[in-house]
């Protein structure tokens, strides 16, 4: 598992930053242009998948461990829920866009949409972490034979 050829590695080294940045761009302009949390999250996850394909899973897991992935995943979902509950707490309505009502920004600017920007960031975090985890889990899970001849699925021990 030492990854692919030097050509692929070099191209990946240059590309990964741009893919990652493009994902962030899609997320933070999601309320102004086509895109949003899901699409941007997928693009961010793709940059990590590209890294895994080119360099092997040990290389990627050293930079973003499974545990960090799990934490980002849960934090993204919790952040989204906090946005919803914030609406409930201060506006009395679940998912109410209280920021927009209180601080209406100029139209078509980055801060024009209140909580939607935060929601998009939360969704992006969640989707990126989830997709990365799905991809990496497929490579760390192993089917092994246990004593009585049946098969069991185990997860490779991750290095702490």
């Amino acid at each position: 598992m030492n990854g692919m050829t030097v050509i692929v590695k070099t191209v990946t080294r240059w590309l990964k930053v741009f893919i990652f940045l493009y994902g962030i761009y899609i997320i933070i302009t999601g309320h102004l242009a086509p895109g949003g949390g899901f699409a941007g999250g997928v693009i961010i996850a793709c940059s990590y998948m590209l890294l895994t394909l080119a360099y092997g899973k040990e290389f990627t897991l050293k930079r973003l461990s499974l545990r960090a992935g799990h934490h980002l995943d849960s934090s993204g979902a919790l952040l989204f829920l906090v946005v919803a509950l914030f609406g409930l707490g201060s506006g009395g309505i679940f998912f109410a866009n209280v920021l927009q009502n209180r601080y209406p920004g100029a139209k078509f600017t980055l801060l024009s949409s209140g909580t939607i920007l935060i929601s998009n960031i939360a969704i992006g975090l969640k989707v990126a972490a989830s997709l990365f985890l799905i991809f990496i889990i497929l490579s760390v899970l192993r089917i092994v034979l246990v004593e009585d001849g049946s098969q069991k699925m185990i997860q490779e021990e991750e290095e702490e």
């Binding site: 849960s74 509950l85 409930l88």
Partner: peptide, 25 residues
């Protein structure tokens, strides 16, 4: 009462994502 309705979904959802963050240790 209307404040309580969303909690029926929000509490389990929040619990579901809060548990992996804190209870590993």
């Amino acid at each position: 009462n209307t404040l309580l309705i969303p909690l029926l979904v929000a509490i389990p959802l929040g619990g579901a994502f809060f548990i992996p963050l804190v209870s590993r240790k």
